[in-house]
Amino acid sequence: MKRKLTVFVLLALLLTLLVLPAQAEEGLYYVTDEADILTDEEDMELETLLQGISEEHNIGVYLVAVDDYTDYGDGSVYEVTYGLYHEYTMGKGEERNGIMLLLSMEQRDFATFVYGADAEYAFSDYALQQLEEEFLPYFADNDWYEGFRAYATTCDEYLTKAEEGKPVEEGDGMIYLIVIGASFLIALIVVSILKAGMKNVRAGQEAKAYITRELNLTQRSDQFTHTTRTERKIEKSDSDSKAHSGGGGHGRSGKF
């Protein structure tokens, strides 16, 4: 009897160990609202949304809201976010790719942390900065749900771009400006050519039609005088290091 009880306890423990991570993955991984700033419905909706995005891209997208980040570890809000990510072994795949947004309501501090080569490819420093501009205006108005939704949908957009080989990079805005500028320059050239066709009255500058003896070249000299030399240091492109950074992860922090 005692032996049967021992087997039962061991089986129960084993079952508990098997079930707990599954619960953790479904209940804790994507939305952790310790500060209780979301309604249950909002919590559920965001959980479903983030789970869908994470599974689609195989990169975990997480958000955590706490009352006071100092309750969860020592150091800055960024360091605590970094600690939580590793403490709960978050991320997807062997490289544990993921991005985490943490809000600390007491200090109104936030931090983002990105980990894993694929995640870091999608979320460069510049991309994180652009991401902040999407959700911070909502947090400034205490509109937590819409802020989180903006975070989720923007993460989805950036991950899609990264998968297409076009991650959000610093030059993007400039490229768009160049494309628009070049388009209007071509438009100007086209209308200028068409407009030039409206005028065909010009003063004569030459008299080629009336040449009776072609050019008789009497002197032809090409005298070399000197050589000038200029050197220009080849700048390394910044985008190389951003696109291939990885290992320890990176992130940003600030106030909302």
Binding site: R213, N216, Q219, R220, S221, T225, R229, R232
Partner: peptide, 16 residues
């Protein structure tokens, strides 16, 4: 990146 430029004085005479 190094750029070397050779400079010339070119003279042409003729009649037409």
């Amino acid at each position: 990146e190094i750029t070397e430029t050779d400079h010339y004085v070119v003279r042409r005479s003729g009649d037409i």
